[in-house]
Write a protein that binds this DNA or RNA. Structure first.
Lengths: 152, 152
DNA sequence: CTAACTGTATCACTTGACATATACACCAAT
DNA sequence: ATTGGTGTATATGTCAAGTGATACAGTTAG
């Protein structure tokens, strides 16, 4: 169980936690029934407030990744891989919606659009692009890397 | 020159303006040398503060879409022999960029992502329409009501 | 010159997201 | 009951984005 957090990445800490835990669940490193590290444990290891951990946990419960039992550690929920997959595809669809509109508006053919998408995916196979959001109006300069690490 | 703004969409107004103007430039509706509507004109038509328009304009200049001449209206910048089609594909690429990032983050396969995109495009196709190459200047989707419109 | 346009720099305000400190509720073992 | 675990509701603080009111600078026409 490796967790890495960079408070200066621009990506909210609670979201970094979510993403990495989701990843660990998806990859099978965290199996159904496994307990998550306690909020305070993670808190002291990562130097993050327990509430921030809790926030991540809450969202994970909202996403049905994790099960909540009062007074006890959270456990990975028993869940078929299919559910997770469906959720991801759902996210993907949401992300694609505006582009679909644009394609129609620009009058581009579906084939062209699909090809462009495929090309982009292909060309980004393993580059060093920073994770995160679309380039925003102002560029919040990252570059720094002092990260907090947790291993269990 | 159609501009639609929805202050409740969650997308910043200045960004809605940018996107639509970029789109109009990409589609050829706005040609190099054309003047943009004045900040105050757009302001009163859309019910938006002139500064918000100005902000959009400033970013458009930063993106080399538009040229700034003190005391005079902004004009669409002379684009070096760029074929309209290329501009459109460029816009498409930009629109797809965040989704590409997301696909990588979610660990979805390229094929899956492409298929999802194709499905979405397919399902939004209007009956009786060829995969046209002509721009459709009309109707930027938008399910919500409550919009401000400007036509020029 | 004045007038009527252009765009915008500056400052102030609102709003929402994020992170946090504190205090509380629950469970299990002693 | 007490102690030491668990998670978290609540309130507070911070900060940046977005927006807007005002005042100002440049251009063009009279």
């Amino acid at each position: 169980m490796l967790i890495v957090v960079d408070p200066h990445s621009g990506v909210p800490v609670y979201r970094q936690l979510m993403d990495q835990i989701k990843l660990h669940v998806a990859s099978g490193l965290l199996k159904p029934g496994d307990e998550l590290p306690s909020t305070r444990a993670l808190s002291s290891e990562l130097g993050v407030n327990p509430m921030t951990i809790s926030k991540a946990y809450s969202f994970l419960e909202r996403d049905d990744i994790v099960e909540r039992r009062p007074g006890r550690p959270l456990v990975v929920k028993t869940v078929t891989g299919g559910v997770i997959r469906d959720r991801r595809v759902e996210e993907l669809r949401k992300s694609l919606a505006p582009t679909v509109t644009m394609v129609k508006q620009l009058g581009l053919s579906d084939e062209e659009a699909v090809r462009a998408f495929a090309d982009l995916l292909e060309s980004t196979r393993e580059p060093g692009e920073g994770s995160g959001d679309e380039p925003r109006p102002d560029d919040p300069d990252n570059g720094t890397t002092d990260e907090e690490v947790s291993r269990a």
